[in-house]
């Protein structure tokens, strides 16, 4: 019963809320959509913390995503023994890299008074969840190795079952507790999305690469660039 809630009910609730609240917030309080950067207040620790965290987690998520979306490609890549080892070790390194960044960010948030006074409950909730999640990921990667290989048959299948609306928890039911917790925490973080600064992920300004440099608006006509 608990498993059913944790791996079927909760994920659906989390995703539904994330989408609904995210959209509602976007249209009713767009002002609050911000990455809330504190670089202006503290610059040095942020360099090590923010860069390590962001680049580390981006690569890790990319690996998770390919395993989920393109399992064949993923398996082909990790197929050879040597490649599997390389990927395994890279995974550990990246996890440690991003965990190092996160912990540093947490220390910074605590110890730098200027940053501390701008922090609210949501900031801390998010930061702690992320630390727990990455630490769990690292734990799983080390103690249940070759995740690159078993991920596609278990987690991927379970996620696909969720997305195709034919939920099947048999894939995850027999997993060790750490793995299960890692899965669960993933949806906790999704749930946190619309309520925290995480929304900035959805507004990554990719259009900057092709939009005209200058933005000129005729209040009385339509939008046009130079």
């Amino acid at each position: 019963m608990l498993d059913l809630f944790l791996f079927v009910g909760f994920p659906y609730i989390a995703i539904a809320l994330a989408i609904a609240v995210g959209i509602y917030r976007y249209f009713s309080d767009r002002f609050s959509y911000s990455s809330l950067s504190t670089q202006f207040l503290e610059n040095n620790k942020l360099f090590w913390g923010s860069i390590s965290w962001h680049y580390g987690i981006l690569l890790i998520l990319l690996a998770h995503l390919t395993a989920f979306l393109l399992p064949d490609l993923h398996l082909a890549v990790v197929g050879g023994p040597l490649r599997a080892v390389v990927l395994e070790v890279t995974g550990w390194a990246l996890a440690m890299y991003s965990l190092f960044g996160l912990v540093l960010l947490a220390i910074r948030r605590l110890s730098d008074t200027r940053v501390a006074v701008t922090s609210n409950l949501a900031d801390w909730l998010l930061l702690l969840s992320l630390i727990v999640q990455v630490a769990l990921g690292l734990y799983v990667a080390v103690f249940y190795s070759w995740g690159g290989l078993w991920f596609t048959q278990t987690a991927s299948s379970w996620l696909w079952s969720l997305f195709t609306l034919r939920p099947d928890i048999s894939y995850v039911q027999t997993m060790p507790w750490a793995v299960k917790l890692h899965f669960f925490m993933a949806f906790v973080i999704i749930l946190l999305f619309p309520f925290t600064r995480l929304v900035h992920v959805f507004t990554v300004p990719i259009t900057y690469l092709w939009r005209p440099y200058q933005v000129v608006i005729w209040v009385r006509k339509s939008v046009r660039g130079v």
Binding site: T207, R211, V215, V216, I217
Partner: peptide, 22 residues
Amino acid sequence: AGAIYKRAEDGIVLISQEKCRA
């Protein structure tokens, strides 16, 4: 983010507070 724009009618440069993402 494309949050800053120039008003063509009077040239005043403004930052859309809704589009700024820090």
